[in-house]
């Protein structure tokens, strides 16, 4: 009996070390896993945002710490026609560019979803405008819109369609439309590729079923593709609106808000007033005034477009 129990080898669990015990403790793991993310967010997002909001209520300028002035910056801005012009152009720019991007992007996505020759090559080409750094895009468009050396003017004159150079960016409205065109060109790939990903999740058998049910190509789009694309459309649109509304690089590189402040977006105006102009408080107030627009746009696309009952699995009817 004794012999038998001695010869039986018992596998014993090794006692965990203090380090092992520490990593088994859930609160410790929670803290250590969250720390990097929370730390980064606090340093680079929460702190600047809070500082910006604080500055908006002070009269800080570069080189002088300001004092709390309450809503003075905002009341001043409300009477500033340049600010209102920037509000108008930001909304106009975002609205028209979004319509353009989504119209063309959806069209492109539908084209790319078909069986085309060199499909992957085409998809790679489509992505190019998005891969190129924005500032390079801006400089390219700056040349395209140049009053003297514009390639478009050159071609139009060569083909005899015009006799003089086109005025792209030296009067208010042409400049606005030109910027919107550049933004659309740059934004299409993001929309097209995202929507293409959405299109590819739609089962081909749904189209086959619709075909047998007698749907024409338009009806298949109207009743199958579009409703099934709506959720992803909402997310992509939310992102697109946020990026467009807060756009800075394109406008600042091409027109710097000119001519005569006609193409200032809120972001460029905030920078203009804050850094070159030195009025940090006022610049911050302009930046802060973008927040309500962004919150509204996000809520709108989220609630109006994203939530669909058919996506949820509950048995409520």
């Amino acid at each position: 009996m004794t012999d038998a129990s001695l010869s039986t080898w018992v596998h014993r669990r090794a006692e965990p070390s203090w380090l092992g015990r520490l990593f088994d403790s859930k609160p410790f793991l929670v803290v250590i896993c969250l720390f990097p993310a929370v730390g980064l967010l606090m340093t680079f997002l929460t702190y600047p945002l809070a500082l910006g909001i604080y500055l908006a209520f002070t009269d800080t300028t570069i080189g002088r710490a300001g004092v709390w002035v309450g809503f003075e910056n905002f009341t001043y801005l409300l009477q500033d026609p340049i600010f209102w012009n920037a509000v108008f152009f930001s909304v106009f720019y975002t609205g028209i560019a979004t319509i353009g991007k989504f119209g063309l992007g959806l069209w492109l996505a539908l084209l790319l979803n078909n069986h085309l020759p060199f499909k992957s090559f085409l998809r790679a080409i489509i992505l190019l405008p998005w891969i190129v750094p924005t500032v390079l895009t801006a400089i390219a468009f700056w040349w395209i819109y140049d009053p003297q050396f514009s390639i478009i003017s050159h071609l139009l004159i060569k083909t005899g369609l015009r006799e003089t150079n086109v005025d792209f960016i030296n009067t208010a409205w042409p400049a606005r439309w030109s910027l919107i065109a550049a933004n659309i060109w740059r934004g299409i790939p993001f929309v097209a590729i995202s929507l293409l990903a959405g299109l590819q999740t739609i089962s081909p058998s749904l189209y086959e079923a619709a075909m047998l049910d007698g749907a024409t190509a338009w009806q298949r789009f109207r009743y199958i593709t579009f409703p099934m694309l709506l959720p992803i459309l909402a997310i992509v649109m939310t992102f697109s609106i946020i990026f467009t509304f807060t756009d800075f690089q394109l406008v600042y590189a091409i027109t710097r808000g000119g001519p005569v402040n006609s193409t200032h977006l809120l972001a460029t105006l905030a920078f203009q007033r804050g850094i070159p102009g030195g009025q940090l408080g006022e610049g911050s107030a302009i930046a802060v005034s973008m927040i309500p627009f962004l919150v509204f746009a996000t809520l709108f696309s989220y609630f109006a477009l994203a939530r669909r009952k058919w996506q949820q699995g509950e048995t409520n009817d």
Binding site: S203, L206, E208, A209, A210, M228, W310
Partner: peptide, 12 residues
């Protein structure tokens, strides 16, 4: 009329 293997019901 056809009944598909995955039913192909319109989910929306």
């Amino acid at each position: 009329a056809m009944v598909f293997q995955n039913y192909a019901l319109y989910p929306h």
